[in-house]
Write a protein that binds this DNA or RNA. Sequence first.
DNA 1: AATTACATGTAACGGGTTACATGATTAC
DNA 2: GTAATCATGTAACCCGTTACATGTAATT
Lengths: 181, 181
Amino acid sequence: MSTPHAILIALLEKPSSGYDLARRFDRAIGYFWQATHQQIYRELGRMVAAGWVAVVEEGATDAAATRKKVYRVLPMGREEVERWVRETQLGVDDRNVFLLKLRADAVIGPLGLGEELPRLIDDARERLETYRAIEQRDFGAPALTRGQQLQYAILKAGIHTQESWLEWAEELRPLLNGGDA
Amino acid sequence: MSTPHAILIALLEKPSSGYDLARRFDRAIGYFWQATHQQIYRELGRMVAAGWVAVVEEGATDAAATRKKVYRVLPMGREEVERWVRETQLGVDDRNVFLLKLRADAVIGPLGLGEELPRLIDDARERLETYRAIEQRDFGAPALTRGQQLQYAILKAGIHTQESWLEWAEELRPLLNGGDA
DNA sequence: AATTACATGTAACGGGTTACATGATTAC
DNA sequence: GTAATCATGTAACCCGTTACATGTAATT
């Protein structure tokens, strides 16, 4: 649901054409966020209509580049990004969205993520405790059947995920709080 | 795209009504797989039409339970689950789908996941190497700006995710290979 | 000359989400 | 008797996906 914002942030990092955006979403960005070129063109059209982005009009850099349309973010688009980062509450399962917010914070000054992170950390700790409780309740027995071992493995996947994320988040914390935010 | 299979597997674990399924998807299952009651009823309808599931007809357990419809998986539904587990190739980003496959494996015998896991492990290792390469190339400098530190943090999130998953996967490996598969 | 890469779009479909709707049963 | 829970559904919308479509520029 935040594809337009993903595009806005990518454009803040570097003004691009739809085609370039598609390539960027296939490479680096695509590791944690996907968007096909159809989505990109669709959203670019909408965002032009909304006044968030505009096509860069340069007096024909070279005659060949006529077809290429480079988009840049307008003030209203930038404001929309700030609003979205500040007002969109995330849950424990929206980690890639939080990474998107981090990218926004990396491009345009501090956006108050230092206040959202602790809440996410608390949520992750809570969920981890839930998992630990299930672990002790359901998998404390000495001998488990194959099926039970597999179900235990599924639970462990969840435990690993939370623990690993918490480690990362604690490491990130000072970066968001220190400085000036 | 595998909501119907998620429902089938849940029904294999325990025949349930649509309402019960919705509650199960809100609780335990919902930690890594979501489905609203609208989706559940829609899919149940389709799967009845496809001959994958059927309503359990018991001669009125008690007169009050008239409205409740309990579904069970028919042989064709079970075969469809097996087919899906065996034939659906997963990518690095389909980890929750792999957990779903594991749940299927836990309910109905070994389904050949011992062959899919190594491929996923290789993919994860490859991606981890890509991340490590980016790390050395872009973030080797001694002093990084705030923005660069944040971008580095985003990359580290990816590194953590791969490492953590690989640890888990290696732990799981013998369970899928040992025994009889 | 032919193929690949560049570059931008339209159209249709299906699934997930949200809102709406209804009625029975249980608990306070 | 009123509210919460149980229980099942319909309808509309939007987004992501897949397929289709077109044309230019660069490469071999």
